[in-house]
Every structure is written in C-alpha cells, then in structure tokens.
Simulated assay, not measured.
Amino acid sequence: MRYHNITKDDMKNGDGLRAVLWLAGCEHACPGCHNPVTWDAAGGLPFDQAARDELFAELSKDYVAGVTFSGGDPLHPQNRDGVAALSREIRARFPGKTIWLYTGYLWEACRGLEAVRLADVLVDGPFLREQAVSTLHWRGSANQRIIDVRRTLAENQLVLHAE
C-alpha cells in the first residue's frame, strides 16, 4: 500500500476532527477530480512503520474523532488488503474512533469487501463534474452517497448517514 499524505486536524472529510490517509491508486480517473496526483498506484510513498506511527500518534489524541481513508481510492485493488488490515488494527487499538472511507465504487459493488465492512461510514460513487455542488457536506457531487455502514449491515438495507 502506498500513500501521499497524512492530513491532521481535518474537518472536511468526515464528522469531527479527523486524520486523513491519502492513498495512492485510482482506476476511476474522474474528470474534475480534486486530487489526480493520487491516481498513480506506484506514486507516493510506501505506507511503512513510520507512517503507521504518525497516523496512530494522531489517533491517540482524545479530540480526534477518527480516521478517513481517501485518495486515490482506498478500494483500489492494491489498497484493499492494506486498508482492511489497518482498519482492524485501528478498531483494536482505538475502539472509540470512527472510520470513514471514500471510494469511487458504488456500495452495491463493494459492500462485501472487508475494508468496507470495517468502516463506519462509506462515501460512495465517482465524482461527476456535471453534478458537482460546492455546498454539499462531505462529498463533491450529488450522486455520491454518505452511507451509514453499521446500520446498513445491521438492517440489511441502505441507510444514509445524517448530514
């Protein structure tokens, strides 16, 4: 798994103050994407122990609500196993923190992936420039859904997260 950056004190990519891990690799190549530098799966840096330590140091702060996986696409085939493993570790070490995951895949196509099932919230769907709305909360275009993964799995029907 490769990454470009770890953003600290982020308030735009999920509920509360968050740490954001910007992963490398995206197959969607959405026109108008705000982060095309992350598309190259070979770009960025290896997610090594120093990066893990940096992320965990941020998550250990009481005022940080959780982690957001973005990119690129955390569900790019080269990221799936790494994001799932990191999510399991975060769940074990920081049980009170939430996990948000942004992906260009639709819920219907990715709901069975372990990384998705470990998330609390999934923002799904490709960015569509023709549906872009700058005032949307936690998403870039109107087609993207903010899914409450825990409730969706428990109720066996799609439940949107309250904005």
Rank of each mutant, 00 (worst) to 15 (best):
Ile146Ala: 05
Leu128Arg: 11
Gly140Ser: 11
Phe94Leu: 11
Trp39Ile: 11
Glu108His: 12
Asp148Tyr: 00
Ala162Asn: 09
Met1Val: 14
Ala109Tyr: 06
Leu136Arg: 08
His34Ser: 15
Arg91Gly: 09
Thr103Ala: 01
Glu108Asp: 14
Ile6Cys: 05
Trp22Lys: 00
Ala142Met: 13
Ala119Glu: 03
Trp138Cys: 08
Leu45Tyr: 09
Gln49Ala: 15
Asp81Gln: 13
Leu55Val: 05
Arg139Gly: 01
Ala50Gly: 10
Leu23His: 06
Glu89Trp: 03
Leu55Cys: 01
Gly43Cys: 02
Val83Glu: 00
Leu160Asp: 13
Cys110Arg: 08
Phe69Ser: 04
Glu27Met: 14
Asp124Pro: 06
Ala142Leu: 14
Arg93Ala: 12
Arg93Pro: 03
Val67Met: 09
Thr38Lys: 01
Val123Thr: 06
Met1Asn: 02
His76Lys: 11
Arg145Pro: 00
Arg2Thr: 04
Leu17Gly: 00
Leu23Asp: 05
Ala92Pro: 01
Val64Trp: 09
Thr135Ala: 14
Val116Asp: 06
His4Tyr: 09
Glu163Trp: 02
Glu114Lys: 04
Val121Gly: 06
Gln157Met: 08
Thr68Arg: 00
Gly96Met: 02
Phe94Glu: 07
Ala65Lys: 10
Leu118Met: 10
Gly44Gln: 08
Gly140Asn: 05
Tyr102Pro: 02
Leu128Val: 14
Leu118His: 05
Lys61Ala: 13
Arg129Cys: 11
Lys12His: 15
Ala84Glu: 07
Val149Lys: 05
Glu155Leu: 11
Thr152Asn: 08
Trp138Ala: 12
Asp15Glu: 15
Asp48Phe: 07
Glu155Val: 02
Val121Asp: 00
Gly16Ser: 09
Glu155Gln: 13
Val67Glu: 04
Arg18Thr: 07
Glu27Val: 12
Ser87His: 07
Glu108Ser: 15
Tyr105Gln: 04
Asp73Pro: 09
Ala29Ile: 11
Gly66Phe: 06
Ser70Tyr: 07
Cys30Ile: 04
Asp62Tyr: 05
Ala29Gln: 13
Arg88Lys: 14
Asn13His: 03
Thr98His: 12
Gly43Arg: 06
Ala85Glu: 13
Thr152Gln: 04
Trp107Thr: 11
Gly140Leu: 10
Leu45Ile: 08
Thr135Arg: 14
